[in-house]
Nucleic acid binder design. Structure first.
Lengths: 145, 145
DNA sequence: CAGTTTGTTCAAAAAAACTTGAACAAACAC
DNA sequence: GTGTTTGTTCAAGTTTTTTTGAACAAACTG
């Protein structure tokens, strides 16, 4: 913040707040996000980007949704990881900007890849050791058919 | 618990504990359950029933998994609600007994119906009020194409 | 180089979810 | 009816997850 910065927030970065319909859409995704066991903030961020044609910076996301830097950073990273949002650097701009990936198929498969696999990996290795156990059981345990 | 009850737990209701392979399977479902944002206990219960051919009572589930009455009751109800387990009353038996529904397609669709719908209901009504808002916006807001 | 801007990380605080256990209700047996 | 068994509910305690904000690192500007 230097001596030339504007003091009127409405002029600083076109952050005029949310339209009524945008709040509604954001809430919609917030609830959907909740339903799938994801943090609310993920849903909010995706919802916001979903509403906007223009790509938004992290600052704008923070301001518009009233969330902290940490939440914005982590939320955006997660959403990027499962391909729900993509980011671009406009030429000659240091700010990274984000847009929503609108193809829901991608979103879901990305979510499953990121969310399910890490845990199921542990499970998978256990399944293998299980096969071994099963073989040993077949003869002595009648429960296995 | 009356004067005739047996004191040796191994004889009371054939609750001999879990086989090694059963523990492994239960762990598997526990982790999967976690991945989908469901309580651990749901996964454990489903995993246990998944292992057993015989239908189990709530008591047996509690004993074998070392979980409380409340957890067992609520877990079983939830699993029943999205058709992951079904219950039967053996003739002349007051105990309800539970078995796992093995068709995973049913499980997933049941999960989605139960988990997503209640929240998305709120969202849906919001979507309708949204339509109204949108119509009013089309003329004045160039963002909407 | 020093000063900014931008984004990440992580420990602590806050919020949310899960589990427990005791109290309760319903159904049954005698 | 009384006494027992079976299952549900819910407030309180516990655990887990999410959010925050300050400290940090990296990249850029002049």
């Amino acid at each position: 913040m230097n001596a030339f910065s504007v003091t009127n927030p409405a002029l600083s970065e076109k952050t005029e707040g949310l339209d009524e319909w945008e709040s509604a859409v954001i809430d919609l995704f917030l609830n959907a996000s909740n339903s799938f066991g994801l943090p609310k903030s993920y849903g909010q961020i995706y919802g916001l980007l979903f509403c906007r044609d223009q790509a938004l910076s992290m600052d704008e996301v923070m301001d518009l949704l009233q969330i902290s830097k940490g939440s914005a950073s982590q939320g955006l990273r997660a959403l990027r990881q499962f391909r729900a949002v993509s980011s671009t650097f406009a030429l000659g701009d240091r700010k990274e900007r984000f847009v929503a990936e609108i193809c829901l198929r991608k979103l879901v498969s990305g979510f499953l890849r990121e969310q399910a696999d890490p845990h199921l990996d542990k499970g998978l290795s256990r399944l293998q050791q299980l096969e071994g156990l099963l073989e040993g059981c077949v003869s002595k345990d009648s429960r296995i058919r």
